[in-house]
């Protein structure tokens, strides 16, 4: 949230098509950490020459952001790589099926070498989990609906990599962005303010409080300032099935602004 470096690099135009959301595939797609690693090695040797180390070397294509000219599903990517795109000068690549899976896993991870294994399910079912069993809308806001105290997730799929989102669902405390930490403030006049931090500098701090007010405070007015590291979000490990987590992740990844 807020003025973070991650937010700064995001292209919200990606909300267009692309990505997992449009997939017609029904089964969960599993991307293992080991496949992501081997996909990285194959990509670096075979793909980076044209697509670039960051995956944005071809106009109109940004692989880690899931922005493609033609592809949508994993099978689309498989076909594009295997057949090439003659008109665009992309040659066909003769990969083994396992190599193709690895390259796709690397792309789907958002080029996330630190990424853990993750599974992506169905967007529509994931939305039902988000709004129903998961109870996520009790705290989170999406596209203008829901409370604002927890981070607004309208573009979370563009801001964070899939494995980080999965970690936020299963072990919220480990995946919280530092700027989002809860703050407890006691002013010199005795007032207390609890909020979520939005921005901070040497002299001031900006936060949103539980009444959804944006508040900017000068530190010289503050007597006590505590920054919490524990997330207020419950872990969904064991509360949602593996399939439900995969569906929820698919939905969150599809939120791109």
């Amino acid at each position: 949230m807020g003025f973070s470096r991650v937010a700064g690099g995001t292209a919200l135009c990606l909300m267009v098509l692309a990505a997992f959301g449009a997939s017609a595939q029904t089964g969960n797609r599993q991307y293992s950490a080991s496949n992501i690693q081997s996909g990285y090695r194959i990509y670096s040797m075979q793909c980076a020459l044209c697509h670039g180390a960051n995956g944005d070397g071809i106009a109109g294509v940004n692989l880690p952001r899931q922005q493609f000219r033609r592809a949508s599903t994993d099978d689309d990517i498989r076909n594009t790589v295997t057949n090439g795109v003659a008109a665009a000068g992309m040659p066909p690549f003769r990969f083994q099926p396992a190599e193709l899976d690895a390259v796709i896993a690397y792309i789907r991870s958002g080029f996330d070498l630190s990424g853990a294994t993750f599974a992506v399910g169905d967007v529509a079912r994931g939305r039902l989990v988000f709004e129903g069993k998961g109870g996520c809308t009790a705290c989170h806001r999406v596209h203008g609906s829901g409370p604002r105290f927890a981070p607004d997730l309208s573009d979370i799929g563009a801001l964070r990599k899939p494995s980080a989102i999965q970690a936020a669902i299963l072990q919220p405390g480990t995946a919280m962005q530092p700027i989002d930490r809860p703050v407890h403030i006691v002013m010199r006049d005795g007032r207390t303010i609890d909020g979520r931090r939005l921005n901070e500098d040497t002299a001031t701090v900006q936060l949103i409080d539980r009444q959804e007010q944006l508040i900017s405070l000068e530190k010289s007015d503050i007597r006590e300032y505590r920054i919490g590291t524990a997330s207020e979000m419950p872990s969904y490990a064991g509360k949602l099935s593996t399939a439900e987590v995969a569906d929820l992740l698919a939905y969150l990844i599809s939120l791109r602004g």
Binding site: G2, F3, L198, N199, A203, T204, S216
Partner: peptide
């Protein structure tokens, strides 16, 4: 009052 940002929205 201070010129400090609450948030930055980016649209490309």
């Amino acid at each position: 009052r201070t010129g400090r940002l609450y948030w930055l929205y980016r649209y490309t």
